[in-house]
C-alpha cells in the first residue's frame, strides 16, 4: 500500500500556541503553498502531521484508538481529507 507524504514545499504552522482550540471548527493550523492556502481544524492538523510516510491503514489504526467511531466512517473521512490535500498538491503518495 502506498505511503502518504507531505509535500516539502508546503509551509505550515500551528495557530494554537497560546489559545485553546477545543472547538472542533476552530482554525488550528494553516497550510501555505504559493498562492494556495488551507486552514485546518484539530483533526485536520493531527492527520496532516501523520502524513510522514505512513500508509492510510496505519493512519486509520492510530486514529481508531483515539476516536469512538465506526472504522468505515473514519476511513472515509480520512480518505476524503487526503483526497482534497492531494488535489491541492499538498501531499503525494509513494
Amino acid at each position: 500500500m502506498s505511503k502518504v507524504f507531505r509535500n516539502p514545499d508546503v509551509l505550515w504552522r500551528r495557530e494554537s500556541d497560546d489559545s485553546d482550540v477545543s472547538q472542533e471548527e476552530a482554525v488550528a493550523a494553516i497550510l501555505f503553498s504559493g498562492g494556495s492556502m488551507l486552514s485546518l481544524n484539530e483533526f485536520g492538523i493531527e492527520l496532516w502531521e501523520m502524513c510522514d510516510g505512513q500508509t492510510v491503514d496505519e493512519i486509520v489504526t492510530t486514529l481508531m484508538s483515539e476516536f469512538e467511531v465506526d472504522e468505515d466512517v473514519l476511513r472515509s473521512d480520512i480518505q476524503d481529507f487526503l483526497n482534497s490535500l492531494f488535489q491541492k498538491g499538498f501531499i503525494r503518495y509513494e
Binding site: R13, E15, D17, D18, V27, I30, F32, S39
Partner: peptide, 11 residues
C-alpha cells in the same frame, strides 16, 4: 471565515 484571526501574518 471573515473573522479569521491568525496569530501572525502569512506574508
Amino acid at each position: 471565515m471573515s473573522n479569521l484571526q491568525l496569530k501572525a501574518p502569512l506574508t
